[in-house]
Amino acid sequence: MRKVAVQTTLNGEPVEFLCEPRQSLLEVLRDVLNLTGTKEGCLTGDCGACSVLFDGRVVCSCLVLGVEAQGAQIQTVEGLAHGNELSVLQRKFLEHAALQCGICTPGFLIAAKALLDHNLNPSESEVRYALAGNLCRCTGYDKIVRAVMDAAKEMREREAYG
């Protein structure tokens, strides 16, 4: 099958790749670009393990074609930390023991970032609904929700006091 050249912005950097038109964005990230932080759990849009930000919105990368990334801004878990400094969300996930096996974690971090990007003061139920598209089988979500709420709190305080 003929490959297509796609130009996109990935974690802030311009990237060009070749992909088959039938390849999903998830396949491109993992198999073509070696960014294996984004995980595959179902390929049907039901688990959220493959979540990435696509022009700032959470999408299941298993349901997006690689060619659709043309001209888009894509953000994956690999782009969350600033160099060696973890993002607040990443740090809170560790502090709250919000991961057990960790396979769902990249997807949850992305979905939580999308929430906090526009709402730094979410209620518990807003957090739960923002994470409704991500399945975690290990934690019962308790510590994940606490980590996200606590991250929001720290980010609010940071904003308030500079």
Binding site: R30, T105, P106
Partner: peptide, 21 residues
């Protein structure tokens, strides 16, 4: 304490079975 394999798991660096090529 923070688990030792935690940072690799929140940064996407940890290698699960499907991540081997």
């Amino acid at each position: 304490p923070i688990r030792h394999d935690g940072v690799e798991k929140v940064t996407g660096r940890a290698k699960y079975g499907a991540d081997y090529y």
